[in-house]
């Protein structure tokens, strides 16, 4: 009888420590996690596709979205990040307008990545 109790105790101890735990899903790293994109690149892309066409402004409207310098680009994006994402880097982006060459997907992703990283200068 004593042996039976010892056996039962052993089985209980054995079972008590049982649990089912699974490690959380691994974080999938995107290209943006490792990419290093700085202000100089972003300004070059924006100015060659937007400001150089006479808009934003180099000269014409919209004056509110003034991309004539790095500081002004940063100030605009900081104030209206949603609009910039929607119209420039997002899937429904409509800028630059259809009359001009569209931004490549790589350029859009790079700009979005730069914004997501806090628009670093270096």
């Amino acid at each position: 009888m004593k042996k039976l109790w010892i056996l039962a105790g052993g089985v209980c101890l054995y079972a008590m420590a049982c649990k089912n735990e699974q490690a959380p899903a691994p974080q999938v790293k995107t290209a943006c996690d490792t990419a290093k994109i700085f202000t100089s690149y972003a300004v070059a892309v924006i100015q060659s596709n937007c400001t150089s066409k006479g808009c934003h402004p180099g000269g014409n409207s919209p004056a509110a979205a003034n991309f004539s310098s790095a500081d002004r680009i940063k100030a605009y994006i900081a104030a209206k990040p949603g609009i910039f994402a929607q119209r420039v880097t997002g899937p429904q982006a409509d800028m630059p307008p259809a009359a001009f060459t569209a931004l490549s997907q790589g350029a859009k992703d790079s700009l979005a990545c730069w914004v997501n990283h806090g628009m670093p200068d270096q």
Binding site: N20, E21, Q22, A23, P26
Partner: peptide, 10 residues
């Protein structure tokens, strides 16, 4: 008791 994500405990 503990396994990788999508592995089987049992």
């Amino acid at each position: 008791n503990k396994v990788a994500y999508m592995d089987m405990n049992n």
